[in-house]
Structure formats: C-alpha cells, structure tokens
C-alpha cells in the first residue's frame, strides 16, 4: 500500500513544477519540450502528526511538507491549531507539562524524526520569532549574539561579523549600527521585532518559524517586516503562521489552511487563493467565515 503522505507530497511537488511550467509555457509557446525544472527539496515534513495538551486533542493527523528556501504560510481561523502546529516544529510544547505527540516530523536531509530528538538539539537548528517582540534585557548586540554564543562562538571578530550580517539581513543594521550597545528596549516595537528576527537568523537556522510576527505591530512596521520576508524568500526556509490572509497571499510560496486541528488544504499559494479545492478554504478566504 502506498503511503498517503508520500502521495500528498508528490502531488504538491507536481503542482509546484506544473505551475512553473505554465508560466514557462506562456513565454515560450513554441517549445516542444518544457524546460527541465529542479524538483523542490524538502527541509522537513510532518507525517500524520497528532498532538494533545492533556486530554485535548489539538492536531489531528496533520501531514505537511516544508520546501527548502520557500515561505510556507499556515492560515486558518482562531483556535484551528495553526500556532500549535508551528510550535511542534521546534518542540516548544515540551516546556509545558501535559504535551503528547504522535506521528512524526522528519528533518531533511538526514531524515530524522525531530519528535524523537532532544528538544534542545531541535531548537539549535530551528529558529523562532514570536507574536510579541521579546528581546532580552540586554544590549542590541548581545541580543543578536545570544544565539551565536550558545553555539560556542566566542571570537569577538566573528561575533561582530555575524551580528552585522544578521542585523543587515533583518534590515535593521542602518538604524542601530551606532547604538549596538544600548538596551534593546530603547527600540520601537517594529524594530524590536526585526531585532528578534535578526536574533533568530544569526545562527543560520535550517528553518525559521514565525508565529504571527506582525500581529502586535502597526501597519508601517508590518510592511517593513513583510518587505524583509520578501527579501529572505529563496534564501531561508520559513514557516509563518498568520491570521492575515492578504499577508499569506503576499509573502508565501505555499499555503496551508487549517480548520479544527486538521490540515484542510495545502498547496501553492496562488492556487489555494484562486482555486481552492475545499469549500471550507473558499469560505475562509472569501471572508464568509473565520
């Protein structure tokens, strides 16, 4: 019997390549052979993932592939389990009692189930940015350096290099380069959130998890973060949870729609938003529900 998850991933890949074909075909209609496109590389993949908090069954057999260097958005109404799913990827639930996982989240390329790994090890590889900016009570520099220091980087020169790199990557360098050693709390909310992104990016994580990173920010700060995510696109593997559908449509390559703990729909963002397969997704994205 064929693994249903495998099929799902294959379908997803086909969808992705075919959508690229379409645009290719538009440009070069006379071509007999379509351009060969490289198959997407997977970074991680949830397979039949179930999750409980105490007696509450929150995630129900979720299977989802995370494509390398692409932005995957998880959308859905409040309480659908989208944040819970995200927090499975870095085992954040393990900080609280009563968590129970079943199923697996494979990490690629070594094909290991992160549910069975040490949570600390998982978190050394998968970074996260939270809903509310949460910089440490330290200087801007030390905030970004924190993730490097825990990974054993002690050389001042390397630290400075990587901190500058991360802050530039988070489009914050120009604003803070003259006050790297001031407290992070002197920054505005939007700057703090970009600092948190820099902090998560500095150790070059395999996957960056973003849990509604703009929900506590004003529209201008939100726009800056979205610009930043667009820049990061194609260089970092991102999973973003958002309650903002326009945001998902704007910045993601793939979109997953969740409802009541189940993954209802998952595919290339354009398709999910233009021709959703499930009526539930359609209702949600057209604003009829949620």
């Amino acid at each position: 019997m064929q693994n249903p998850t495998k099929t799902r991933v294959k379908l997803l890949m086909n969808e992705m390549t075919s959508s690229q074909h379409t645009s290719g075909a538009m440009r070069q209609q006379q071509d007999v052979q379509p351009e060969p496109t490289s198959a997407p590389v997977l970074r991680a993949e949830a397979r039949n993932l179930d999750f409980w908090y105490g007696a509450t069954h929150i995630l129900k057999s979720v299977s989802m592939a995370v494509v390398d260097c692409k932005v995957t958005a998880i959308i859905g109404p409040s309480g659908c389990g989208k944040s819970t799913l995200l927090r499975c990827f870095n085992r954040m639930h393990d900080l609280y009692p009563g968590n129970r996982y079943s199923g697996e989240i494979q990490l690629y390329p070594e094909d290991r189930n992160l549910i069975e790994m040490d949570p600390g090890m998982v978190r050394l590889r998968i970074g996260m940015v939270f809903q509310k900016p949460n910089p440490f009570s330290k200087s801007i520099f030390e905030n970004v350096a924190a993730g490097l220091r825990v990974r054993g980087v002690a050389d001042k020169r390397i630290l400075y290099e990587r901190v500058e790199q991360a802050l530039s990557g988070a489009a914050l360098w120009d604003e803070v380069k003259d006050r790297l050693h001031d407290s992070a709390y002197g920054l505005s909310g939007g700057q703090q959130q970009r600092l948190c992104i820099a902090r998560a990016l500095a150790p070059q994580p395999d996957i960056l998890l973003l849990d509604e990173p703009t929900s506590a920010l004003d529209p201008i700060a939100t726009a800056k973060i979205e610009d930043l995510l667009t820049v990061l696109r194609n260089t970092v593997t991102v999973i973003i949870v958002t309650h903002n559908m326009q945001q998902a449509a704007r910045i993601s390559d793939f979109t997953a729609y969740m409802h009541l703990g189940k993954l209802v729909e998952y595919g290339v963002t354009e398709k999910v938003f233009t021709t959703p397969q499930s009526p539930m997704t359609n209702d949600y994205i057209t604003g009829r529900f949620g």
């Binding site: 090890m121 910089p135 440490f136 009570s137 998560a200 150790p203």
Partner: peptide, 27 residues
C-alpha cells in the same frame, strides 16, 4: 518575568540554566 521571554531563550536552544542566567536574571 513573562514566559514569552523564556520561550525566546529556549527557542534559541538555551538550556534551562542558560535561560535562568542569561534571560531571567537580567530581566
């Protein structure tokens, strides 16, 4: 000290002691 701050530490791969010493005590 809010839990969110500790989560930020754990998310970077901090151990419990490192969270206490580097996140909670400074805060």
């Amino acid at each position: 000290v809010p839990m969110g701050l500790r989560e930020a530490g754990y998310a970077l791969g901090f151990s419990r002691f490192r969270v206490a010493a580097q996140v909670v005590i400074p805060a």
